[in-house]
Every structure is written in structure tokens, then in C-alpha cells.
Amino acid sequence: MSGEILLEVKDIRCGYDGVPVIHGVSLEVRSGEIVAIIGANGAGKSTTMRTIAGLMHPLSGVIRFDGADITRTPAYSIVARGLAYVPEARRLFSKLSVRQNLEMGAFTVKDRGEIAARLDRAFQLFPVLKERAGQIAETMSGGEQQMCAIARGLMSNPKLIMLDELSLGLQPSIVEKVLETVVEIRNQGITVLLVEQLVQEALEISDRGYVIQTGAIVHQGTASELLASPEVRKAYMGM
């Protein structure tokens, strides 16, 4: 089911203010896949995603997306290339309406008709957002905000979407719904790279996974391999 390599991260090292945090991470995502990155708090999952998204640039290493080198490409051009990042803690534009948030997601698109069509698709995926279109983002519930954040990411019509801890602050029933949506997104032909604390749940919907620990990949494999691995079960699923 998986096709060409869409995203390729080769031995990146990253840090904040000169303090290294990622010490050589490599991974790849093939088009059509759902790939999970799992690891403990502070392992460097978000830093890896932020670097891929272009919010920061690696000290060394290479990132290639859809055949092009994007290692030093600024975030605002990366999204235009078809790589969207739904950041940790959602980061909606708090004082703007749901509709404005969604339209901002298609900021790189100029054609009004195209934007309206994408808005329709977002409302089909999350009907609740249609009812709440005029509501100010910060006044919505956590679950609604997460849906809005995913929908905003999809508004750029990405080839690959990175989802950083969708489950953060959500009750289990909502998490289940959100993860079902992730599968639906992939079935629409969008490749997914996700970071999740809920290792079991994440691996159940993923094709492959990487385990990251203090800034380095320590395990990798198909989702079922990782789910069966005693080390992974012991370290991340408390079994």
C-alpha cells in the first residue's frame, strides 16, 4: 500500500540556543502511510516535527520532501509545498472565529472558489465546525478546538500532514473519534506522520513507528512489531 518516499529526514541534529536536543535522527515516510513517532516527555518529538515544518532549522543533516531539499526552507514556503503541521497544543488563533481560522489554513490559496470548496470539505469531515463557524476559537471545547486545528491543517490541501499530540487534554471517547478521523484522512490520500503519548492507540492505527529517546531513534519497525516488542511495551505501555 505504501508508495514512494515522500519525506526523508537524514541524520538531523537540532538544538535551542546552541544546546543540542536532537542527536542525529533519521526517518522516512512513504506516501499513503500513517507513521507514528512515540517517546517520553522531552524526548524530542515536537522538536523533530518543528524542524521538519521549518519553524527551526537543523544544525546538520538533510530533510527532503517530495523530491526537494527543504532543510533550510522557511516554514511559510514549506506549507505551500504540501507539508502541513498541526502543532502541539493546537495553537489556534484564539480571538479569530472558526471560519477565519480555517480560511487562514488556506492562506497560500488565492482563488475564493477553491477556498470555499475546501471549507465545504472541512465541514463534511467535522460537521460540528459548520455549526460553530462564527464562534471565537478560544471559546470552544478542547475537542472542538482539536478538530478545528486538524481541519485548519487540511485546508492547505497537504500531501503530508504532521499531527503533534492530538490526544492532549482530551477525554478517551473524543481521542478515539479523533484517531478515527486520522484514518479517514489517510484514506482520502493524505500521508500522516503523528506524534502520540498514547502509544497503544497510536500504533493501532499506524503502519510503522519510530521510538525516540533523548533525541535519538532507539527502535523502529512496523506497528505490529513495535506493539509486540517487550521493550516498547514495558517502556511506553506500562506492561
Binding site: 515544518a53 521549518g54 519553524l55 522557511p74 516554514a75 511559510y76 514556503s77 506549507v79 505551500a80 502541513a84 503541521y85 502543532p87 495553537r91 489556534l92 488563533f93 487562514m104 489554513g105 492562506f107 497560500t108 485548519r152 492547505s156
Partner: peptide
């Protein structure tokens, strides 16, 4: 940062 992620 979120604005940059939207392409701004």
C-alpha cells in the same frame, strides 16, 4: 509561529 505554519 502558527501564522508561519499557515504560509504567512
Amino acid at each position: 509561529e502558527a501564522a508561519r505554519l499557515m504560509g504567512v
